[in-house]
Design a protein around this nucleic acid. Structure first.
Lengths: 332, 332
DNA sequence: TTGTACGCGTTATCAG
DNA sequence: CTGATAACGCGTACAA
């Protein structure tokens, strides 16, 4: 009839039903202490006016529930729905709700998300690339928990992944299998990320060669991005006999590119992923990978938020730190 | 120092800074009309008290932003993150935020989600199995848009998938390829769902046999669920030469089960999925499928919500109806 | 059983 | 530039 009209308030309902606002409140909230007849009359009026209590007014007086924001870089990458599932699970247990933002791996959009969430949420957890300083500026004091950042790297809450330990295991596995020419399909642009640093260290420790010629950047973090990266690596370092991918998607792309270039996997070149997506079991050959417990990551993040809010000591050490586990399948 | 203390209000800040609440408001909201010196003093006090404006109080007076709830059955199924991405995208464009719930395909949890969201959200979109009546009871008048329900099937808003048209195309393709013994790996328990109904109709139209012996139920909607279903179908109808899966995950499971049983795909048995997951391109053989534009589905749902809220006529016909597109790859 | 009066935390209006 | 005062919409003692 008229969609642009202001929404009905409790007052309107009271007026229409010929009662006081208090009575309306009782009827709507299904309290006792009200005559069934009037209650029906009130409810009817409410229905006719399409009345719904304002969640703001209600939250104001009832000390409304907790809302936390979740910022992920890319919902279409199967990795992130899994950590999101962990966050949702833990949040729900506490009766919290979570509003989700996809930043599309764009620092600008990450900041926009913060601007929004710092107003609408009681806490934020997510993936951010900016430095603490700039994050703080967009945060307005809202508690923040950074995903996949070491606790020593930020003054905010954090839940990390022990990339170094994972990479160590992965490289050791490859070396044990006899590989001496190992490449990295990296995903971190700009400064060397944890994976690259850990990779170089691990490879060096085994007395193998490493320099930037063994490392190619895959800005895409996708199967096709991995394919492109692998092609470049193959061109630059034809003698390569094993590669580890920044994540499973990239690794899968590497497998396909290797095969496309006429190499057998794992016989000619072994491929190791870093994620543990269930997708890895489905491809041919099945992907060996450093499996990360993503759900746990999400749950831990929520727990950190809870501690921050309570003013408790944040989780630390092994409790706020998930370590990748080597899963050997066919590809390596 | 003390986490359980009540949060500081604007009043506390005003008191500490020795100004009025109004001045605090001006400082915090970065309005003009305030002396830089006092502003700094106020901001300092706010910082010291860890003051953050109540989003409820603010929403109350400022006519707060729109929040919509999104309820999905299973975030770990790659299908749903994609529709979620569509919802988030469209919502963000309108400046709305969306709170996400995973119902784990449990009607009971779907209702819980409604109970919660009907209080905290201005609208809800999602997957629900209950009948209109019971949904309405948990909805308290909040606008609802049902995902993947025909507009004629509900009194709420809806965005549908033209399963019949899709299935028609799929079965036609199989028949054209010479298949005469076609099975269905269904996913809808209880009453026959749209896929099953459409399947039976399409197969019959081509003069082929159908009865429940050709149809097996996969309650799991996963790769392993599909595998189990395929195994049963193979046992019951060894002569089967083609199957269509309820979704791509189930179809992938079917492929693996078929191979495990010594059948070649697609030579001995063709497999057709129903989803269009990008995962389908990665498996071996690549999965033929009825591709659904899931992002669009999500975007349309948000658009429906917008119309509902504006009191406009909801989208209908082709505009609220996404039709699956046959993508032929290797598996069929 | 029903109504009155007040407070929740913030912003807007209008004086000063 | 700053400060009273009045909403915003609802819940809850307390009184009738």
């Amino acid at each position: 009839m008229d969609g642009a009209r202001r929404r009905a308030t409790i007052h309107d309902v009271a007026h229409l039903a010929g009662v006081s606002r208090q009575t309306v409140s009782r009827a709507v909230n299904d309290k006792g202490e009200i005559d069934p007849a009037t209650k029906e009359r009130v409810l009817d009026a409410a229905r006719r006016l399409d009345y719904r209590p304002s969640r703001f007014a209600r939250g104001l007086v009832r000390k409304g529930g907790v809302t936390t924001g979740l910022v992920v870089p890319d919902l279409m990458n199967p990795y992130f729905p899994e950590v999101a599932a962990g966050v949702l699970e833990a949040a729900e247990q506490r009766g919290w709700q979570v509003v989700v933002w996809d930043s599309r791996t764009d620092p600008g959009r990450e900041r926009e998300a913060l601007d929004m969430l710092s107003h609408q949420a009681d806490a934020v957890v997510g993936y951010f690339t900016d430095a603490d300083e700039v994050l703080a500026r967009h945060l307005g004091g809202v508690p923040l928990v950074l995903l996949e950042r070491g606790p020593r790297q930020t003054r905010f809450g954090a839940v990390g992944i022990d990339v170094a330990a994972g990479m160590e295991r992965g490289v050791a596995h490859l070396v044990a299998a006899g590989h001496r020419a190992i490449g990295l399909l990296d995903g971190d642009a700009g400064a060397p990320g944890p994976r690259r640093v850990a990779f170089e260290r691990a490879v060096r420790r085994h007395g193998l060669p490493v320099d930037e010629s063994w490392i190619v950047l895959c800005p895409e973090h996708s199967v096709s991005g991995g394919g492109a990266g692998m092609a470049r690596l193959l061109a630059r370092r034809p003698e390569v006999t094993a590669v580890v991918g920044f994540n499973d998607l990239i690794a899968v792309g590497a497998v396909r590119a290797a095969r496309g270039a006429g190499r057998r996997v794992p016989d000619d070149v072994a491929v190791l992923g870093f994620d543990g997506l269930s997708l890895g079991e489905l491809v041919e050959p099945a992907l060996s990978t450093l499996h990360i417990d993503k759900r746990r990551l999400g749950r831990l993040a929520v727990e950190q938020v809870a501690r921050l809010r309570a003013g408790e000591e944040p989780l630390s050490g092994a409790d706020a730190w998930v370590v990748p586990e080597l899963v050997v399948r066919a590809s390596a």
